[in-house]
Design a protein around this nucleic acid. Structure first.
Lengths: 207, 207
DNA sequence: GCGCTTTTTGAACGCCGTTCAAATTTTTTC
DNA sequence: GAAAAAATTTGAACGGCGTTCAAAAAGCGC
């Protein structure tokens, strides 16, 4: 009834990821405890460290899965050929909806703090970067003369701005923020981009 | 050499705040340790809890001071009568600059996580809310027909969006983000608002 | 100086992530 | 198949954390 090492390790890895995902989905990042994880995965505490260097690495794995879910949601939000304003509005609202329906998982992605000097692993940044392509498509139609580099930068900017509105709203860091208010803000914001961005890109920087 | 209780308490309070601020400015939120704090303020660990209910309350106090610094910076950034685009661009860039020069203090404001159900104290939300008035002024000029309520909501939205760009850039959560890139993004963003917002406000919500 | 109250103290509590000597299991060798 | 060697797993133990609370110290009316 014994299997070879790689398979056992892989199974433990999967079980730990599943346990971690369940813990985060139920109680958020702060509910992720090494001892509880070990019990849920049916192993000793120390065994976690045979598979992941530390809990941070496990968290990155779970967060990457969350981002992949988001990617799927965004992909199914706009069909090719949708006009830019509708596309951008739907993407922003889908992002907001995802942050609501997957609240704890989504919060964990951005609440996860790593030690001061270090950066997220490259494979993780790759998962993040893939999200932007959803925004780049409507941008290409909105700004026909733009270069791919411009659009890549802009996609990051628009994602960040949307994220700011959604996250500060969700965490209620600035005060109460009902869903409809946030959704309304996103609608105004995306419309403002559609109207304003074509004239705003490439403008000289004078402080 | 003894003073009355209120005065001693007030002094200890001030010393603890100063020690906490120094700890955060040097090593960030995670460098705030009860024992180190007590030593720096010259009291026993338990004495902290005579003055603050817990470390969270102390953190809110320090963060409010950071926000008041930011408020001063923003206030000195635009003189009354500046045209809306210049004003909004300068405000956004000042926010970015502040997040850079006061990096650890500023990060602490948003990294501070409170237990799930609870909300920040009202006096703290008041300090936050006061920041928005800087944005409301140029908005009033940009959108002459708007109501104060519309402008208040918009100010929150624009602040949140700016914050998203600045914070995801600073924490490099999406990948490397040099200062000039973030500043450039903010310039494009504010220009887009100036061009797009007048047409975008009040538009009907159709998803 | 004495008894009563209030304030301060810091050892102790419970919990955390992580480690590592020891136990166990697997593989190799004869 | 047994014994020796290597690799893996284990969980008690470590150091550190925020917070508590019995006990010590200080303040105060007489």
């Amino acid at each position: 009834m014994t299997t070879d090492l790689p398979a056992r390790r892989a199974k433990l890895r999967d079980d730990l990821i599943a346990a971690a995902e369940a813990a985060i989905a139920t109680g958020g990042l702060s509910a992720l405890k090494a001892r509880a994880l070990a019990e849920a995965a049916g192993c000793a505490v120390g065994a976690i460290y045979n598979v992941f260097p530390d809990l941070d690495a496990l968290i990155f794995t779970v967060n990457a899965r969350t981002l992949e879910r988001l990617d799927e949601v965004l992909a199914s939000t706009v069909r090719p050929g949708t006009d830019p304003e509708t596309a951008m509005r739907r993407l922003a609202l889908a992002y907001h909806g995802f942050s609501r329906s997957e609240r704890r998982r989504w919060t964990a992605v951005f609440a996860h703090q790593i030690p001061d000097g270090s950066t997220p692993p490259d494979w993780y940044l790759g998962v993040v970067g893939r999200l932007f392509r959803h925004i780049e498509a409507p941008l290409a139609e909105l700004l026909p003369g733009s270069t791919p580099e411009t659009r890549a930068g802009l996609a990051r900017t628009l994602f960040s701005a949307t994220h700011g509105i959604v996250s500060l709203g969700l965490e209620e860091k600035l005060g109460p923020a009902p869903d409809e208010v946030i959704a309304g803000a996103l609608v105004v914001m995306t419309r403002s981009w559609v109207l304003g961005l074509p004239g705003a890109v490439g403008v000289a920087t004078r402080p």
